[in-house]
Design a protein around this nucleic acid. Structure first.
Length: 485
RNA sequence: GUCCCCUUCGUCUAGCCUGGCCCAGGACACCGCCCUUUCACGGCGGCGACACCGGUUCAAAUCCGGUAGGGGACGCCA
């Protein structure tokens, strides 16, 4: 029965918001970069909005003035933009709405639905520790809940007077019905001693005033949901739908964190991943559409269904991301890839000014690189002629053979007009038959001469890309190297 | 400790709602073979899972109960 709701792909909001337009939001707190978990949450929100013609709102939750930074905000926006997750409204900043929150705190206070609490954090900490030690749930004991006196000039926090007894339940779009006994929930603080509002309260006010219809957020917020629902009800706001997406874990099944390697979206860009690859990887983490693996943005939008998101956490697997990235590099537009490759090339001290056409270079490397970084590494030899050779590989051939091969190839190349890849390949075959050499005896030495090593594109591709003149120059150099041994 | 959630190949997952088509399908990784002048790409094949125990049923990965394991939350952080 729990599945019924989520198994109606076309009508996920049937009977609840059927008339109103979908409004979703991504609400990161600017205390770090946009990490892959956040990016996936943003993606699911974006997908649903785009699919249903709804509105995607970006809201920055910066009520913690201490830890929020402008740099983090910029980093988050940069990550969103790189992934192509465009938003329709915002970014809104919670720090701009403090007066609004205060107003609602006032309302709850006036209505007796909230009260001032004069307990100090030291007292609270002590009680909490004691409760934990005794194996009880560490919840506020309600000391100030019914107190009549209001000590003048004493610092206080404002607590929400939570309903006691009964249960608070909701139908999660991903997890099904979740029920909490109200006795598990204590009177949460909605305003701090310094007068600033707290997270759970701001979220409710914002989601309500922004008319959010569906809250899609991380799994770690499930426990906050019943308290928020109680606030919605106390405030007289309609309760939105909730969808809690499972966490992303590291290989050791612990929550993904820096020690598992890169978690920042931007660091994936810098390592040479394509945004469409990361997006594709992220959408398949916890969600699937039959046996499909490759999704363009359009296909994701078309096929996405929040009800098909899995209920369990998933492990982030770089191998699969690599495969996806290789796929998009393989099928990508060479001109675009060339542009994206530039920064990686300069990191390897390569200038493309005096060398082969970069787009031609990219074409020879598309099937050979998993990341742009790897492609850059493999492209270096095109622009910087080898200064040393893979001696171990060279040692497999006699000095005499080497010299003969280099001479024959040079001669053949010099006498023939520059052809296409097939033409050059044919030319090498001729050299082989004319001298009774095997292709391995010719191709490998030439490859080493041209690239310095043994791992490179096909000989024909290299020669055509490099040009005959440069090819001959490099073979000549290798010939001298071989002669000197 | 208390509460909430989760559990299909090493990993991502299909199937579960509507039991039989599933001695469980696909993908990544891994192994082997083929292609091949290197490295790759590609093709073919292999390895490999229903956490466990009971129950219901002619029949259970699918329904019910329990157990174990994992994760999350428990803050004047978000």
């Amino acid at each position: 029965m729990l599945y019924c709701l989520s198994q109606l792909p076309q009508y996920p909001f049937q009977g609840v918001t059927i008339m109103s337009e979908l409004r979703v939001r991504f609400a990161p707190s600017p205390t770090g970069y946009l990490h892959v978990g956040g990016a996936r949450t943003a993606l699911f929100n974006w997908l649903l909005a785009r699919k249903q013609g709804g509105t995607f709102i970006l809201r920055i939750e910066d009520t913690d003035v201490e830890r929020s930074t402008k740099e983090s905000v910029d980093a988050i926006l940069e990550g969103m933009k790189w992934l192509g997750l465009d938003w329709d409204e915002g970014p809104f900043y919670q720090s701009d709405s403090f007066p609004l929150y205060k107003e609602y705190v006032r309302k709850l206070l006036d209505a007796g639905k909230a009260y001032k609490c004069y307990c100090t954090s030291e007292e609270l900490d002590a009680k909490r520790n004691l409760a934990m030690q005794e194996g009880r749930k560490p919840k506020y004991d309600g000391t100030c809940r019914e107190r009549a006196d209001q000590p003048e000039g004493q610092p206080y926090v404002v607590r929400f007077r939570a309903p006691q007894g009964g249960v608070t339940a909701f139908d999660d779009l991903i997890k099904g019905t979740i029920t909490f006994p109200n006795e598990e929930l204590d009177d949460l603080i909605i305003q701090r001693t310094d007068g600033t509002p707290t997270y759970n309260f701001c979220v409710v006010i914002d989601d309500a005033t922004m008319r959010i219809t569906t809250v899609i957020r991380g799994d770690d917020h499930v426990n906050n949901t019943p308290r928020q629902i109680q606030l919605y009800e106390a405030l007289g706001f309609p309760v939105p739908q909730f969808a809690h997406v499972p966490m992303i874990l590291g290989a050791d099944k612990a929550r993904l964190s820096k020690r598992h390697g890169a978690t920042s979206v931007i660091s994936y860009r810098d390592m040479g991943y394509l945004p469409e690859a990361l997006l594709n990887y992220l959408v398949r983490l916890g969600w699937s559409h039959g046996d499909d693996e490759i999704f363009s943005s359009e296909e994701m939008i078309q096929k996405f269904d929040i009800g098909n998101v899995g209920r369990s956490a998933s492990v982030f697997n770089t191998e699969k991301l690599n495969w996806l990235n290789a796929h998009y590099i393989k099928t990508g537009d060479p001109a675009r890839l060339a542009g994206l490759l530039l920064p990686h090339l300069s990191a390897h001290e390569v200038t493309t000014l005096n060398g082969p056409d970069l787009m031609a270079v990219v074409k020879t490397l598309q099937e050979r690189a998993q990341t742009l970084e790897e492609m850059a590494e493999r492209a270096v030899f095109y622009y910087n002629a080898p200064v040393s050779y893979d001696e171990a590989a060279l040692a497999k051939f006699d000095k005499e053979l080497l010299l003969a091969v280099f001479a024959a190839v040079t001669e053949k190349l010099a006498s023939a007009p520059l052809g296409d890849v097939a033409g050059i390949d044919a030319l090498f075959k001729e050299v082989c038959t004319e001298n009774s050499w095997k292709m391995g005896q010719v191709g490998q030495p030439v490859r080493i001469a041209l690239s310095g090593g043994t791992q490179a594109p096909g000989i024909g591709e290299i020669v055509v890309t490099l040009g005959v003149d440069e090819t001959i120059r490099r073979i000549q150099k290798a010939r001298e190297h071989a002669a000197g041994k």
